Amino acid sequence: MRVWRAPEDVPADLGRTVVTIGVFDGVHRGHRAVLAETVRQARQGDLTSVALTFDPHPVLVHRAAPIRLVTTLADRIDRLAAAGIDAVYVQEYTFDYARATPREFVEDQLVARFHAAAVVVGEDVRFGYRNSGDGAELERLGRRAGVHVTLVPDRSAPEGRRWSSTWIRELLASGDVAGAARVLGRSHRIRGQVVHGFRRGREIGFPTANLTGDGLGEVPADGVYAGWLVRSVPGSKAAEYLPAAISVGTNPHFEGTERTVEVHALGRSDLNLYGESIAVDFVEYLRPMLSFESLDGLLRQMDEDLRVTAEILGVPTAGRVDPAAVTAT
């Protein structure tokens, strides 16, 4: 899949396209209905499917409101590629860009830049200056420009709530990663670079890969989870999935103050992940973060966490590793 970040990246001989528009944060079930229709129309017409997405999130520009994206931009692009999109245009979202009228947006970007023959969007689409354009306006402008417009109806859960990024954030804020996976259609993922921690885990038989700071994606509520540590296989596009127990929080037993994500790959003492970019998939919430009266109490609970994690993930049970066998430096 091609990724464009500036007008000059778009090839002059692009040809006609089918364009879809949105932040696509999370690329959840609702988004995938729009993407599937975009890809279907493009393939049917032998056209190029293009996803126009935005970075940073418009909310960060217009409201300066704190919002954590469900997925990182890199994972968003990967998910768009997995949906079958041929090219992604990452539009830098600025106040100047947001001043374009709906007509300017259609004529200057969709038609002049992307040569759109068709546009596929959700029925709740808003675009142009102060979100003054809606689906009806897009259809009107499309007819004027010779662009066919498809408004895809919202997709909802059986209980009636619309699939949305907002819903996912609510579920993650409560630690309900299984519920978030239901809306996403897959496990929730964060991504970051492994950094050095206090090395307490390796000293007691639970070495961890530590992630911290902004830019990871939406980190679920504090607690312990079952999931997967996902790393790239060197020299390949393949990924290696390692069953893992995941701790999110400040580590109250050791009176920590910095919120971190600590990932223990079950039974592995041979991993040296410092400086490596990894992904973490959350499968199920196990328990809250706790402070124990003794180290033995903590260790007994961590042993149980490993047992339950293995059971949930359907992998062999693994106990603590020998601290002397840990190879990370």
Rank of each mutant, 00 (worst) to 15 (best):
R126N: 08
R130I: 08
A74E: 15
G122Y: 02
F127D: 08
F114T: 10
Q109P: 00
A100L: 15
R140V: 05
D134Y: 08
R161I: 11
V149L: 00
Q109F: 14
R99F: 11
T72L: 00
F127W: 07
V152C: 02
E107H: 14
V106N: 03
D96S: 13
G135V: 02
F114L: 04
D154W: 09
I85T: 12
P153M: 05
A81Q: 12
A82S: 12
Y129A: 12
V119H: 02
T150N: 05
Q109S: 10
R79V: 04
L141H: 10
P102Y: 09
A100E: 11
R76G: 08
D108I: 00
P153A: 08
A98W: 10
S164W: 03
Y89M: 05
L151A: 11
S164K: 02
V119S: 04
G142N: 03
V149Q: 01
G122R: 01
Q109G: 00
D75L: 10
A83W: 03
A157F: 12
A118Y: 00
G146T: 07
L73G: 06
Y129P: 00
D108G: 06
D78P: 04
R79W: 13
R126D: 08
I77K: 01
L80F: 07
D75T: 14
P102I: 06
T72P: 03
A81K: 07
A82Q: 14
L151D: 10
D124C: 05
A136D: 15
D124F: 06
R144D: 14
A112M: 02
D124A: 13
N131G: 15
E123F: 07
D134Q: 05
P153T: 08
T150S: 14
V121R: 00
F105H: 11
V152Y: 00
V90L: 02
P153Y: 10
L151F: 09
R79F: 13
G128Y: 06
V106K: 01
E139C: 14
D78S: 14
Y93D: 09
L110D: 07
A83N: 03
D75N: 12
E107A: 15
G133A: 05
A83S: 15
D108N: 14
H115T: 11
S132C: 07
V88L: 01
L110F: 04
V111R: 06
E159H: 15
T150D: 12
R113V: 12
G135K: 00
A112Q: 11
V90K: 02
